[in-house]
Amino acid sequence: MRIKHSRHFPWLLYLAPALLVYTVFMAFPLIDSLRLSLFSGNNQVTRVFVGLDNFKRLFTDPEISTRYWGAFFNTWKFFFVHFIVQNGLGIFFAVLLTQETMKGRQIYQTIIFIPTTFAVLITGYLWKLMLNPVWAGDFLVSIGLPFLKHPYLGDTNTALWAVSLVSCWQWLGIPTMMFVAALRNINVELLEAARLEGAGSVKTFWYIKLPLIKPIVGIVAVLTFVNNFNAFDIVFAMENVNGAPEYSTDLIGTLFYRYGIAGQHPIGIPDAGLGAAIATITFLLLMVLVIPTLRQTQRGA
């Protein structure tokens, strides 16, 4: 049986405050800014309508398109590292942390969360210090691990991996927290029944726990995806806004910031139209991939 609430009125009333704040301070400014992807020039005085020219430049200008595709593939790598390492560890730790009889669960969970509370500035500085052969080199030699001495952040082969893993280190607390909340919500009797049937912990996880927390897995997947496609701070803090070395850590987020907000060092003349074009493309891409994910994992979406 489904209960009909035919009247729109009360529901719209519940939605109104959120809709109002969201529309005025986010949706409207965002739409207004994305509109700029059809214009060139940086302020009202010099702005000219150019149609789809900014999009054309993004994909045909040799310099800009090289940068864009570089950043595009880097972002996918960055995302996959997060998806596998951060969310994989998150769900693994969450399963460990929801074992009712284990001691010290709250302590472990808090420790996992600590890095999440840091400003990215700190994370970047700390790991830059620890990954720097000039300062960490002697230490690694002294603990008998000289082969680990390597300029990770200065080597184009390792920089992106290093930055991605540091970012996972920082944000692991969030998926862990969400998975713990979801797993705690599973009916204990159900798990007890599975145990009596003789299901091992792997089987219980795969056939009972995972299907039950599917909506949360969906949320976490979507949030990881969306956040990583707009990620920017960690590269800014650990490398620089160019995605050093040699653009190997350049992400869509840093590319967008460089072209659309700050402009290329040292002149710093941003290209608002190009920035908006990058954001628009990213938005469309995310929508195309997020909606099916939601349909798959969310009831009634």
Partner: peptide, 18 residues
């Protein structure tokens, strides 16, 4: 979906309007 869409654009882009 109108709400969900808001997660997908960096708010920095709207700085001037804000």
């Amino acid at each position: 979906y109108f709400f969900i869409a808001g997660m997908m654009i960096p708010i920095k882009i709207a700085s001037i309007k804000l």
